[in-house]
Computed example of a mutant assay.
Amino acid sequence: MLTTIGSYVSKLLRDHFGKGPESVFVSMGSAYFNIYIRNFLSPMEKVLLEQEQGDVVLELRQKMLDRLLPELRAYLEIQTGQGINELYYDWDLSNKSGMIFGVSSAPFEQGSAIDENYAGRAELEEVINKISKQAQKLPDQTISCLLNPRTLVVMRSGIMVRIEKEMIRLGHGDLLRNVKRQLEKSYLQSSSQFENILQQQVVDSFVDWHFELDKSVILFVLKPNKITGGNEPDTG
């Protein structure tokens, strides 16, 4: 089923962007799923990036994904038999990669076991809380887990301050999302502290928000070491 979902996402992107990704890796565990997209950049986007128009590429992708997500949600619900309560997405244009992450209404029957007791969890969550406090406020709650040996998920709730809520009420949600993403990624992509904690190389990092629920997801894609090998595709 995971392969079927990956093929569907690849075709969906190819049909709407003119070029599909090199690979799509889908993983599920507990009530979480993640779709990791690699080597995805259309010819038009490549030209825009060469002209230093990365913001335009991200804006176009945001508009396109906002149109595609209802279709993707419906497909996932049919395939998994679960309602999809939350969807998040983000891109790393420099790595030509992306993620679509979701939370279902109940654990997936097809999902693998997640690791909530991975080495370094308390220290990593402490660092994430410090970053959150610098960027906005200390989260009301921070939880994390390894969805699989190469995918680390951090979920935060209660992180928005009053001025951010007011910006959303006034219709400036897209601007707020872009500003927050640039700010937090400047911290997250200084990956040495996370690599020291996890004893693994961080290949990719993503972040997105669900403003209505006052929640956020951070996702790290890790390069496997000898201890945490697996059957997932090579990530770099």
Rank of each mutant, 00 (worst) to 15 (best):
I5W: 02
I5N: 05
G6Q: 03
H16P: 06
K19L: 10
S23Q: 08
V24A: 04
A31D: 14
Y32A: 06
I37V: 11
S42V: 03
S42Q: 06
L48T: 01
L49D: 04
L49H: 02
E52R: 10
Q53N: 10
G54P: 02
D55I: 10
V56S: 12
L58K: 07
L60F: 15
R61M: 03
L65S: 05
L72G: 00
L72R: 00
Q79K: 15
I84C: 08
Y88H: 08
S94K: 14
F101R: 07
G102T: 04
V103R: 03
S104E: 07
A106G: 07
P107A: 02
P107N: 00
I114M: 06
I114L: 09
D115M: 07
E116V: 13
A119F: 11
A119I: 09
Q134S: 14
D140Q: 15
L146G: 00
N148F: 04
N148D: 15
R156V: 08
G158E: 06
V161H: 10
V161Q: 10
I163E: 12
E166V: 09
G173C: 04
G173K: 06
V179A: 10
K180N: 04
Q189P: 03
S190G: 12
S190H: 15
S191V: 12
S191Y: 12
F194W: 09
E195A: 05
D204T: 05
W209K: 01
K215N: 05
V217M: 07
P224M: 06
P224V: 04
N225Q: 07
N225F: 07
T228E: 11
G230F: 07
P233L: 13
